[in-house]
Simulated scan of single mutants.
Amino acid sequence: MSEYLMEDAREAGRLAEKVDAPGWVRAHLSHVMSPRAAVLDVGAGPGHLADAVLCRWPQAHVVALDGSAERLAAGASRPGDSGPRRCCAHACHLPFVSGTFDVVYARLLLQYVAQRGAAVREMARVTRPGGAVVLFDLDGQLMWHDPLPAELGSLLARIRPALSAAGFDPNTGRSLYRLAREAGLRGITVRVEPYHLIAGRADAAERARWELKLDIARPFLHRALGSQAAADRAASLFLDFLDDENTLTYCVAFTVTGLCP
């Protein structure tokens, strides 16, 4: 199994802070939900999306599943509070009998999973006939920048093979339709929308999110580039790029929804 590249005590907070969980749930799950649905969040992190699902549909049965018990615990409800059930397991080996859930979704998980096809097949397996699988992931992450400075481009070119070797695919989004079909899903819909889009200088909040992300990724950058100095240089150059009024960086998000036959 591939190891999560962003393993860090700060990761649970970063994952929760970077998304409007109620907004994402409303935009991407409302069309497949029913009030009492059984729902599985695969790669839930601290469970911020699962919490939002339960807040919007209080009678739903929601399970937040993640490969890290620590991340799950970081978002656990206070004693006495109701909340989603939390389960630690790998996406390729879901510990549920077939046909358990009405809705299964994964947001920004599959880009980190080397065995993406196995994970999507597992999601389809635990979804009841007529239930929905919702896959959301990025395409072009860390790939599309203009104008790309030569030194930063050279460092990124060295990092990408290491990402691939670790099971990370920056272009996962475009593969979701194929993976859904291979898993036997039917009535598949595909939606594409901007995700990262920074034209000119990043605002303070966006820059702070990238600074934290790069800091958490620094051990991986060290391994990929061979030295801490090179890792620090890559992070510094990327932040300089985000500070430049003349630059643009972007990627897109794919949402693929399919029904189990």
Rank of each mutant, 00 (worst) to 15 (best):
S2N: 15
S2W: 04
Y4P: 15
E7D: 13
E11G: 15
E11R: 12
G13Y: 12
A16V: 12
E17N: 14
K18C: 04
D20E: 11
H28A: 02
L29I: 02
S30A: 12
H31K: 11
V32E: 04
V32N: 09
V32T: 13
A37H: 14
L40C: 08
V42I: 06
G43R: 02
G43A: 01
L49F: 09
A50P: 15
A50I: 07
V53F: 01
L54C: 10
L54D: 14
C55F: 07
H61V: 04
A64P: 13
A64V: 07
A64I: 04
S68G: 13
S68N: 11
A69H: 12
A69P: 15
A69E: 10
R71L: 03
R71Q: 11
S77N: 13
S77A: 14
P79L: 00
G80K: 04
D81A: 09
G83Q: 04
R86W: 08
R86M: 02
C87Y: 05
C87M: 08
H90W: 04
L94C: 10
P95K: 03
P95Y: 00
S98N: 07
F101W: 09
F101P: 15
D102R: 10
Y105C: 01
R107D: 13
Y112W: 06
Q115P: 11
R116S: 05
G117N: 07
A118F: 11
R121S: 12
E122W: 05
V126I: 06
V126L: 01
L135S: 11
F136I: 03
L138C: 07
L142I: 01
M143I: 00
W144H: 12
D146P: 03
D146E: 14
P149K: 00
P149E: 00
A150R: 11
E151R: 12
L152K: 12
L152A: 05
G153H: 07
S154G: 02
L155N: 09
L156F: 10
L156W: 10
A157W: 12
A157Y: 10
R158M: 07
R158K: 14
I159R: 06
I159S: 03
R160L: 02
P161L: 00
A162M: 05
L163R: 07
L163I: 03
S164K: 04
S164W: 12
F168N: 08
P170S: 01
G173A: 03
R174D: 11
Y177L: 08
R178H: 08
R186F: 01
G187P: 06
T189A: 04
R191D: 14
P194K: 00
P194H: 01
A202V: 06
A202D: 05
A202W: 03
D203S: 15
D203A: 10
A204H: 14
A204M: 06
A204C: 10
E206H: 13
E206K: 13
R207W: 05
R207E: 13
E211I: 04
L212H: 13
D215W: 05
A217S: 12
R218N: 08
P219K: 02
H222E: 13
A224V: 09
A224Q: 09
S227I: 05
A229L: 04
A231I: 06
R233F: 01
A234E: 15
S236F: 09
F241R: 10
L242V: 06
D244F: 13
D244E: 11
N246K: 12
L248C: 15
T249W: 01
C251G: 07
F254V: 07
T257P: 13
G258H: 05
P261H: 01
